[in-house]
Design a protein around this nucleic acid. Structure first.
Length: 419
RNA sequence: GUGAUCGUAGCUCAGUCUGGUUAGAGCGCCUGGUUGUGGUCCAGGAGGUCGCGGGUUCAAAUCCCGUCGGUCACCCCA
């Protein structure tokens, strides 16, 4: 053994079983839920030309200071994706699939930031994106799919927050109203918020600092600054959510971190986790993004859900059962191991799962291994069985009698006892 | 990026403040009791450069500095 133990890089970690099994279950449930609405999987590359992500907005921290970018050997400036919306929309611009284009994805993203619970440098998201329609019913479909997914997983303590940022023009007017509001009393703001005010007044609404609370509470509300068009769109979204029974809270100060959102924005928060990582998913409408990435002007809406945090919420709510056994049958061979080679192969060929012990260990050790494997049945072969062409089948979980049967009867016996 | 806190066996931790014999416990693991039977019990055993590097000291897991990593808050976000 080397004298140095390597560790996974800061902010990354290995997902071992049974966590890996939960991870897979989550993605399977997600693909079933969105698949039921006709969404099809897209698998974009993990890195892109850096400009693709710069279109997300120079004011966002995700782009400005958290991006993993580097020059490749061909002199291209490449970035590991910090999120997948930009990649999916870029793929849409490049291939121009038929409208509406409804896609889902699952995979890792990368952001260079200080890791803590529920926040990693490599983190997993699942999400959907739809390009084409402007219909508010589509916003509601997307939101409802996120909600149904959490429901199907078994989470009960998820809250849906919705808001509208209005059209791009509404948003610009609102930003100015906010700037005025905060600037008048900026001495009352925290130092950090005064800096934020310079670059992006919307984000001041997101501050968790106590000093800022009074001024934020008194700030103008976005929903009061909507144009008639945007207000009607938002009313359409909420009416559709009402119609399908998805509960939501209108949250006039909900601001999301990516600058491309217009009109509908939403966030899924869990009460099962501390405030620092309670945002388990979010999304919204991004009508200008496709044009930014070179496609004809095409509206879009979507969301991304954090797999790591969702799994944390699942653990907090105890939605997963104890992990299942890895195998059905464990072969114990005390004649040297040659019998186990053949028997495990026969059992596996029949569609059952089988494992065995290695290195010629004692029967006691092999039986212990059989017990720990969580297999329901043991197939035991000693010198007697080998000579007689039989095997002994023993129930490891119940109290039924063990029996010795011919090799021809083995599969049938295992099948019967597993039933 | 800022501030705080922690890092001792595979895991969970005691020991650190008040430096001093071979660094401990529980669980897990291995072997045996039971030369053909696991899960309980009993006995024995393996396993640690006390995160890493430097300093102070006769002596450092223990004090000091640095560094890496975890965690928490801010920031940001999923």
């Amino acid at each position: 053994m080397s004298d140095h133990v390597f560790r996974a890089p800061k902010g990354t970690r290995d997902i071992l079983w049974p966590d890996s099994a939960r991870w897979r279950t989550l993605v399977e449930v997600f693909s079933e839920v969105v698949g039921s609405a006709g969404y099809l999987e897209v698998i974009p590359p993990i890195f892109e030309h850096v400009e693709v992500f710069q279109r997300l907005g120079e004011a966002t921290d995700v782009v400005r200071k958290e991006m993993y970018s580097f020059e490749d050997k061909g002199g291209r400036t490449i970035a590991l994706r910090p999120e997948q919306t930009a990649s999916v929309v870029r793929a849409f611009a490049e291939h121009r699939p038929a409208l509406p284009y409804k896609a889902w994805y699952a995979g890792p993203n990368f952001r260079y930031e200080r890791a803590q619970k529920g926040r990693f440098r490599q983190f997993e998201q699942v999400g959907v994106e739809v390009l084409g329609p402007t219909d508010p019913h589509l916003d509601a479909e997307v939101i409802a799919l996120g909600w149904r997914f959490y429901e199907r997983l078994g989470l009960r303590r998820v809250t849906l927050l919705v808001n509208s940022l209005g059209t791009a023009a509404d948003r610009a007017r609102y930003v100015e109203a906010l700037r005025t509001h905060f600037t008048v009393d900026q001495d009352a703001l925290s130092e950090e918020s005064r800096a934020t005010l310079e670059s992006n007044p919307l984000r001041v609404l997101d501050s968790r600092r106590e000093a800022d609370a009074p001024l934020i509470a008194a700030a103008p509300r976005m929903l009061d600054h909507l144009s008639g068009d945007a207000a009607a769109h938002f009313a359409g979204v909420t009416a559709a959510l009402d119609a399908v029974g998805v509960p939501y809270i209108i949250s006039p100060r909900l601001v999301r971190g990516l600058d491309y959102y217009v009109r509908t924005t939403f966030e899924f928060a869990t009460e099962a986790l501390d405030a620092a990582q309670n945002a388990v998913g979010g999304g919204g409408r991004y009508d200008g993004l496709a044009a930014e990435l070179g496609a004809p002007d095409t509206p879009g809406v979507g969301f991304a859900l954090g797999v790591d945090r969702t799994l944390l919420a699942c653990d907090a709510e105890g939605v997963f059962d104890a992990p299942a056994a890895a195998v059905d049958v464990f072969v114990v061979d005390v004649t040297g191991g040659d019998e186990a080679v053949v028997l495990t192969d026969l059992i596996r060929a029949d569609g059952l799962r089988a494992d065995r012990a290695w290195d010629g260990r004692s029967m006691k050790a092999q039986m212990r291994a059989a017990d720990r494997s969580a297999a329901r049945l043991a197939v035991i072969v000693g010198e007697d069985e080998k000579a007689a062409g039989t095997v002994t089948v023993r129930d490891l979980r119940g109290d039924s009698e063990q029996e010795t049967v011919t090799r021809d009867q083995m599969i049938q016996t295992l099948r019967t006892r597993l039933r």
